[in-house]
Design a protein around this nucleic acid. Sequence first.
DNA 1: GTGAAAGCGCTAACAT
DNA 2: ATGTTAGCGCTTTCAC
Lengths: 344, 344
Amino acid sequence: MAKKRINMKDIAKEAGVSTATVSYIINKRSDQVIAPQTIKKVEEAIKRLGYVPNLGARALASKHSRLLGLLIPQTEKETKLMFSNSFYGSFLSSFEYEARKKGYNILISGTDVDESYVDVARKRSLDGIVIVGVEIESDIKDLKQIGIPTVLVDSYGMDKELSSVTIDDENGGFLATEYLIGMGHRTIGLATGFLTKEGVNTERLKGYEKALTGHGLPCVGQYVYSGTISYEYGLELGLQLAASSERPSAIFATADILAFGLIKGLKRGGLKVPEDISVVGFDDGFLAGNMEPALTTVRQDVDGKARIAAQLVIDEIEEKENGSNIVLPVSLVERESVRKLVLH
Amino acid sequence: MAKKRINMKDIAKEAGVSTATVSYIINKRSDQVIAPQTIKKVEEAIKRLGYVPNLGARALASKHSRLLGLLIPQTEKETKLMFSNSFYGSFLSSFEYEARKKGYNILISGTDVDESYVDVARKRSLDGIVIVGVEIESDIKDLKQIGIPTVLVDSYGMDKELSSVTIDDENGGFLATEYLIGMGHRTIGLATGFLTKEGVNTERLKGYEKALTGHGLPCVGQYVYSGTISYEYGLELGLQLAASSERPSAIFATADILAFGLIKGLKRGGLKVPEDISVVGFDDGFLAGNMEPALTTVRQDVDGKARIAAQLVIDEIEEKENGSNIVLPVSLVERESVRKLVLH
DNA sequence: GTGAAAGCGCTAACAT
DNA sequence: ATGTTAGCGCTTTCAC
């Protein structure tokens, strides 16, 4: 308790100046000219007393919190954040780093039933928001209306006016499927999450279909398995497929984590990958190369995505720019989870 | 710009009451008796105008920000947060969830060279802090001095007065090593991160040594490999060991992620796991069972750790309790990465 | 070049 | 049962 926190007034008194002067100095305001010796006096007082500005108070007065919100989707059953998928962990790492370098801190919050993310944003006076991989149309509309700079990551067609960063998901789906076709596969399944109208999964599906039809292959819903992007669903599906006779010779899973579960399930079901069935993933997280078999997958640049997302919100907050729609390229990383089929 | 944000005064005016009354109602203060109809009027006004309280202003006036800081270690080279280790992602998920249920938000921040975490805590008026797996003595001393409730996770002997939650790391190391010995291994290596005086790695090392000496086995530094807790270091070490003739028959890696890298390195180096060399990990993250071979590892309850950490800080903030030192149990999960050695 | 003072939106004594 | 009002720590306009 005790020890009253040092505030600006204390510094002002100690240095024998006004709080206004202290404020000017702390904020290094270029529009205010301060005598060098005054600056020195104040800086010494700050050091001597160990003063740390209260950003909450500053936010109240200045309307800038220098706080960024990161919205991560929640798992279906739980309302916990989806950090089991290491994609989000990597994203957060890079995002926080980039933001911190520019003087912003990150607030992480899921949303409860009774409270939208927009409320969190307002409550906490967030300067900007990055939403990754979720589509809550109403929220986004509200966000725009309130005028909080928002950047959408991995979200399609939500709102062209908002800044966004995505990867070329359709092409990713295309590359994966083309590759499989090139390896001789003719019945190719797709394992994916919930297919929202504008989500990444749908884009990857489009690429998948494009490749299929491009080669005159049938593109029937029968081989599209849609569940959740999770290890568990992959496992379940793998087991199921292993037990089925109506099974494609290859599967494109729209996330590595899904592919991992899938492979495990297939193996448990007695199949060998890639001997009996081939699998291609998506993400190329750091474990992909370590799986057995090493996963052939579509590589995306998570680090780049995160940094760009941070830059975009911050630029928008600081009114340097706005409304960019960035699309990052993807590529296929060939490893060992696909077998070359010899056609007879 | 435009649209002025609705504040408490607006609500007061709309409902025909004072701001104090609005404040009492919003905070559901039990020490204030308000007429039901007044409550109704105010609640309607809030709804009608779409009012959301400004927590920054509240924090300023009440000295409670309802913000918790989560301090995650940074990687050595970069100053990025260490979220590649999925342990931290899982921890964050559960921690955020538990805190949110109790009305707290989470601020994530790394630290820069010129700014300690204590500064962040003060700047952002954090109500409490959870520090996981790092030992910055000076910071912790400052934190205590400033009187910000702090909970140490995975940190030993730092300060008995601070609340903490750990798992029984020493026992974990012991279990893993005992198991290996029971499987017939006599030369057992230890792969771990940087061995700080009071870190988890050192505790696990103690358990390792205890098991060894308990069986009269030599406990020489020769087989202790200390690098960083990372996939990369594991890989490097694996490669190195594979090329060496002086190699233990089994290795206990003090983190799954390290074990993953290690196994990959060993394999690349031409060895088979567990045929040529056995590996035990630590954590039992959700991928452990999926590796090839499935990893035998020490299981810890990350979810429990995170929830308890959240509870402890919050209890301390709300002055319900303080100074608990919780130790969670661990157990060994037997899978396929260890070979039973027949002694001749 | 520096300072006085009016807020920012809220809480909490203290009145009534 | 409700209102008045003085801050909380900072920024910013306007004086000087």
